[in-house]
């Protein structure tokens, strides 16, 4: 009798397991070059960051703000990009794309020796502090004093989220991507732009 119950239990569990596995959506890689068929999500996804970065880069290059009047390249530092949304966002998802595009433009070079929270690449400074005067290292190969280049321009920005209730079952989420390029010498903003991404969907969808 006990044996029969056990067997029945096992077969039930096995059936449920098989059925559940059968219903689970199949995992597949996203074709990031043609992902239009996938429905939009209320939160920010890679498509939104790509679109915002593309628009900002196009606007920045078209403005002429990154072109030095007498030729040469500006040195850019990335300042604070504030995430004022309900989502955990690494703002590098936006900024890295812009940085890469600006570097490829040939008009800007980005410094990683300075940053809002100290050097972005701490090794640049650390090698100086640690290796300068160190007898184990050939001092001719150690970075000399006064060799670092200070930035000319600073890129800052903010991502804002605003939730609006449309009706009892629909919500609207607005995302504002705002960016500024400031001339460090004068403190004047050479370029500014804003891109808005709006999404409307069910109240059941979480935007974080």
């Amino acid at each position: 009798m006990q044996h029969t119950i056990k067997l029945g239990l096992i077969s039930t569990v096995a059936t449920i397991a098989i059925l559940t596995t059968g219903c689970a959506p199949k995992t597949q890689n996203i074709d990031i070059h043609n992902d239009k068929e996938a429905s939009a999500v209320m939160g920010l996804d890679y498509r939104d960051f790509q679109s915002a970065a593309q628009d900002m880069t196009q606007s920045l290059i078209a403005s002429g703000a990154i072109s030095k009047p007498n030729g040469g390249r500006y040195v850019l530092v990335v300042s604070r990009i504030l995430n004022d949304t309900m989502q955990h966002i690494d703002t590098d998802q936006l900024v890295k794309k812009i940085r890469v595009a600006l570097l490829k433009s040939g008009k800007v070079v980005v410094t990683t020796a300075v940053g809002i929270h100290g050097a972005e690449d701490q090794m640049a400074m650390q090698t100086r502090n640690d290796l300068r005067g160190h007898e184990e290292f050939n001092q001719k190969t150690v970075a000399g004093k006064g060799q670092m280049i200070s930035p000319d321009l600073s890129l800052s920005g903010k991502i804002i989220q605003r939730n609006v209730t449309v009706d009892s079952s629909t919500q609207q989420v607005e995302y504002y991507f705002q960016m500024s390029l400031t001339d460090i010498n004068t403190g004047l903003a050479f370029w500014e732009d804003e891109k808005i991404i709006g999404k409307r969907g069910s109240n059941d969808s979480a935007a974080w």
Partner: peptide, 9 residues
Amino acid sequence: IDTILSEWT
């Protein structure tokens, strides 16, 4: 030329 500016807009 490989660039982000070639993405569909």
